[in-house]
Write a protein that binds this DNA or RNA. Structure first.
Lengths: 246, 246
DNA sequence: GCTTTCTAGGTACGCCGTACGTAGAGGCGT
DNA sequence: ACGCCTCTACGTACGGCGTACCTAGAAAGC
């Protein structure tokens, strides 16, 4: 009776964190998930996400292309590893300060800093929100910060998504929404040119006045972030059915 | 003196909306940006964003691969066209109702409906926020809705980003953050499995309790959307420096 | 020591985006 | 009316991609 051999385990898991990095048999691997992730992160930082290919990473490691597949079964998993690697850059205090709002603010600032250091990460996190060990650390600390707030856990996690989503969107917006090698300056200029000439058709009166008055106050990205963050925090910490209307 | 021949116009614009669709010379084109976009949208709806390739679209149109490049100079521009095509699905009333909050709510619902009809659109909009004619229509109507609100235009546009960003993030989250052909069910199951076993290590006490209490109330996606939307609206409509703390 | 299980890596397939060149159609200036 | 000149259509080809599949050989367990 083969019952002690573990039930067939179905198919091998798709989630990389469920695959053990090493089983103990066979030759010692020459690399590790961590080192692979580090190389990939460095490459993406230097040349953009588009430069990250299995071949390239393998070459950078001095390995054969296909050897990489022993560590990273699919390219998507590489992104998971990269994301979790940069999530390791968070620095959490041993204890939340007790001031929920300012702790959340600090968390958001760290997240923004990380996304600025690794601009590709915003793109990745939005399309592949995988929760590796460092992602869990983040969630854990976040929940610790939120401990004094009297919401149920589901609501707290919804609020976390709200906050994360905002920071990521902001980072992506700040990047100018440009693809790898593109010139941000030119993109901005052309967008303004297009909007200006669209507005001249008279079909967009409100946009016209908005555009006209926009020239005045060129507020810095940081101040925009600060203001919007304040709003988001307020929204997060408002009891669920507070708003009077609708 | 060649001065009447128009100044060199620098380089051809990168923004597709700045390129005239047709100049009037030469043979009549057999296709149009609109028809191309329609084909691409249908294909992405049916087989996912990954199935959208220049070759495939051209084939679907009955055209040679390279002919497509007469209409769409780069693949990225194809995404711009697709996005603006689905943005054409918005239905705006002639006049805002005057109830800002409920008009914004309606706008958000329409946006969510569109993103549910075209799941790929969330991914695209986040990496390539291009503003085509229909995008401008949206912004215009949004500003009309916001007309009674006494913020300056910059702040209103920031608020729009907040709202858009939220809806997009929600749609992406709802999709389960899975890549084209992936099985969402399995992804969810594996994620839960991983979190469960991670929590068992005792390193994540808050997560543990959150996970334990989460089993109770399996709130529907719609109710989550509704609640979070309410918070976002509150955040948007709160005067910029209202919050007392920090 | 034998077996079993792992790692390393080469080869090859079918995709992709797109640079470039050619052929011909049709509007415009004269 | 005619010719020019610009535009469209599209085939060919290049370099790159992810990865399926296969062969060797190294080390851990019995």
């Amino acid at each position: 009776m083969p019952s002690s051999k573990t039930p067939p385990a179905a198919t091998t898991p798709e989630l990389i964190w469920l695959r053990p990095e090493r089983t103990g048999r066979g030759p010692r691997p020459a690399h590790s998930r961590a080192s692979i992730a580090a190389v990939a992160v460095a490459l993406a930082d230097a040349e953009g996400l588009g430069a990250v290919s299995m071949r390239r990473i393998a070459a950078e490691l001095g390995a054969g292309t296909m050897s990489l597949y022993n560590y990273v079964p699919k390219k998507e998993h590489l992104f998971d590893l990269m994301l979790d690697a940069v999530s390791g850059e968070y620095r959490f205090p041993d204890q939340p300060s007790g001031d929920v709002r300012s702790d959340l603010r600090e968390l958001a600032h760290q997240q923004l800093a990380i996304l600025r250091r690794h601009p590709w990460a915003a793109t990745v996190v939005v399309t592949r929100p995988s929760l590796g060990p460092n992602g869990l650390r983040f969630a854990e600390y976040y929940l610790a910060v939120m401990a004094p707030v009297p919401f149920d856990s589901g609501t707290k996690l919804e609020a976390m998504s709200l906050l994360n989503g905002f920071v990521v969107q902001f980072a992506e917006w700040e990047r100018g929404g440009v693809s790898p090698g593109q010139d941000r300056e030119q993109g901005q200029r052309e967008l303004i040119e297009y909007m200006t000439q669209a507005v001249l058709t008279g079909q967009y009166p409100h946009l016209a006045t908005a555009l006209a008055s926009a020239g005045g106050n060129p507020s810095t990205p940081d101040s925009v972030f600060e203001r919007s963050l304040g709003r988001i925090l307020t929204a997060m910490l408002t009891p669920p059915d507070q708003p009077a209307t609708t």
